[in-house]
């Protein structure tokens, strides 16, 4: 399956991913800049923040209470915010588009 990460200025990076991995892993494994993942996907650090393309919000689902709490620490929080390490890539998410916030680029 494939996932597209958009930088904050809209440049797309489309990467191959395997079902069962998380969107954070898909980004890290493919060297996509803009997803840090400091805590290794442990839902602790909020450095894997993404904005889900509105077309995909239904399929991606809701954040857990733990994730929601962590997201609240982000000053760039939006309605479509998620943590990429908490998005598990199931077959229906083939083609998913995620935008990365500017603050995650040094």
């Amino acid at each position: 399956m494939q996932i597209t990460f958009l930088t904050f200025d809209g440049t797309p990076y489309t990467v191959d991913a395997d079902e069962g991995m998380t969107a954070m892993e898909a980004a890290i494994n493919n060297g996509v800049d803009g997803i840090e993942g400091d805590c290794g996907g442990n839902c602790n650090c909020a450095t894997c923040h993404v904005f889900v393309d509105p077309k995909w919000s239904g399929q991606v689902g809701e954040a857990s209470p733990m994730e929601e709490a962590l997201l609240a620490s982000r000053s760039d929080l939006a309605e479509n915010s998620r943590l990429a390490c908490q998005i598990e890539l199931v077959a229906e998410l083939d083609g998913l588009v995620l935008q990365m916030p500017e603050s995650q680029f040094i």
Binding site: E68, A69, L70, A72, S73
Partner: peptide, 10 residues
């Protein structure tokens, strides 16, 4: 207590 942790940091 994740929400306390996040808001407490602020």
């Amino acid at each position: 207590r994740p929400m306390d942790f996040t808001l407490g940091r602020k």
